[in-house]
Design a protein around this nucleic acid. Sequence first.
DNA 1: GGGTAGTTCCCCACTTTTCCCCACCACTCC
DNA 2: GGAGTGGTGGGGAAAAGTGGGGAACTACCC
Lengths: 148, 148
Amino acid sequence: MAGFKGQAEYSVDSKGRVAIPAKMRNDLNPAAKNTFTITRGFEQCIFLYPLDRWGEMEDEFRGLNMFNQEARAFVRTILRWADEVSLDGQGRVSLPKPLVEFAGLDGKALIIGSLDHIEIWNPAVFEDYLNAQASDYESLAESVMGVL
Amino acid sequence: MAGFKGQAEYSVDSKGRVAIPAKMRNDLNPAAKNTFTITRGFEQCIFLYPLDRWGEMEDEFRGLNMFNQEARAFVRTILRWADEVSLDGQGRVSLPKPLVEFAGLDGKALIIGSLDHIEIWNPAVFEDYLNAQASDYESLAESVMGVL
DNA sequence: GGGTAGTTCCCCACTTTTCCCCACCACTCC
DNA sequence: GGAGTGGTGGGGAAAAGTGGGGAACTACCC
């Protein structure tokens, strides 16, 4: 199954709904049943995991040692924010209010496909994130992929 | 499968379409289904990877640790700009607007075959890139290939 | 227990963009 | 010189995104 990719700037309507780009919808595995687990992302954004992929993630969490304080804190955080959302007839999901506030969304949303999950950003916040990057794309690539 | 090679200067029409040189189209593996994954290149240009080759790249990305910030930033960038494009009946692809802007394309495109991918440049930008090279072709060759 | 207000969910309609197809021109090879 | 291949340009149909209305469900208050 091809991973998610691409970006789009769509609107968040007054009901907190955002359309998922058709290209990403087409990459959904039927096993995901048009449903995502939505949760807090890394950096200030929202992550959407297709249901099938989320199942694998849960298995990884189960493998963690719950007598370890950090493991407990990590799992608590990711699950606390998590919720299940399904696509409506128009290919949209409605975002839980707490996550809308966390990501600072208002009116516009930047949607980014990132292999096994979809990210939703406030465009302005994403801009700041980019500016805060220490290294440029070429250096990143060399550092991340250079050792292969 | 032979690698891509050669260069051509073609026009970009008002709809952002560019023809892929017939010579390069002939080098496409049937497994690529006349489809490319197009994304941001290194330096100011656009990369086109045939679908089959892109699959291998995705596998490498999946191998990265997504809990590492640098890896995340790199994958976010390369996938954010990525899109899937197919050849139309005339052997053209239509370039996503964001990439046209990124590469600074207007009217003309320099298309370069580069082994496993195809590059698309604004001819003027490519000229500047060449002029900015610190070392000449002979020195580069020695530095890159000399240790073999 | 009933009524009301708020929320959620689903469906419908409109607008815009994208994609696909057809036609044309130039060059090359027979 | 004609036919075929390769690049260029534009128009129409289909799909995708956006916004709003109405039914159902819930929760709260009277």
